[in-house]
Design a protein around this nucleic acid. Sequence first.
DNA 1: CGTATTTAGATGACGTGTCAACATCTCTGA
DNA 2: TCAGAGATGTTGACACGTCATCTAAATACG
Lengths: 154, 154
Amino acid sequence: MGETRWLDEREARAWRGLIGVQQRLTAVLERELVQDVGLSGAEYTLLVPLSEAPGGVLRARDLGRLVGWERSRVSHQVTRMEKRGLVAREECGEDARGSMVRLTDAGRTSIVAAAPAHVAAVRRHFVGVLTAAELDLVGTAFERVLDRLPDIDG
Amino acid sequence: MGETRWLDEREARAWRGLIGVQQRLTAVLERELVQDVGLSGAEYTLLVPLSEAPGGVLRARDLGRLVGWERSRVSHQVTRMEKRGLVAREECGEDARGSMVRLTDAGRTSIVAAAPAHVAAVRRHFVGVLTAAELDLVGTAFERVLDRLPDIDG
DNA sequence: CGTATTTAGATGACGTGTCAACATCTCTGA
DNA sequence: TCAGAGATGTTGACACGTCATCTAAATACG
């Protein structure tokens, strides 16, 4: 192995930008979500696909696929949200291994109240700060990064 | 309050790209770091500024400022790393409230071994996948996002 | 059919991150 | 000088995420 090739200034600047946005933007959005509507980012993430599903019910497996989470992460989060009354677990008729996750009335009320504020925050702090050309380029470049990333089992 | 203005396709694509990169790129880098050199991302984050500091010592306050972490986060992480033998706490002479964090020999060995592999991974999965123009634009755009983000106390 | 493999989900242990509370120490200004 | 304000750090409670492990059910395949 030869000399390590460190990041040049151009690379370091993009990398610092990503790390900074990743940490601070996430923190700001999470905080606004919690303070304004009392939902955590993890709760919001699961409530969105549930609220869009017919009947407000999804199988745990499908819920995980929709949000890109692994099984145990979904299971733990559903357990926490069940305690908070946002969702309820039910048995799965078609597959006895399965577990259905149902949005409760309280869960639906929460997500309906939270979504507009969250979208506004995303616009205020991120997409609204970028030009159309920047949005396109970020979309293109990041999709390419994701395509080349090795898959992590699931 | 009027109708909610949702994200258009261009905005949603950039936003999905950021979320995806944030989750999957971070997961891949973290996993490679742990598997190749046995360091977590949090450990790596603190070891870098410590290894660059004269004498391998920094005051906890300054360490936190360098990495952008709040006090309790630094304290908890230093506690865990102290148990692993990567750092050691010492009293601060100048300010009796303070706490100095010193890199141990084991800590220095770890970071020296880890850095080249980590930089290579960042290049392989992120900066190496972007063109020079994309790197510049991401750097510019994300710095602007960060500049406009409200400060979160510290 | 029956066994091996795969899939679904739950769970406990542990590392991580935030918040609130607390104890100390330093600084500031009347 | 000294009381109040601010800074520094630690701690405990709790939410979050990953890993390894376990159980059970579905599926594949000889």
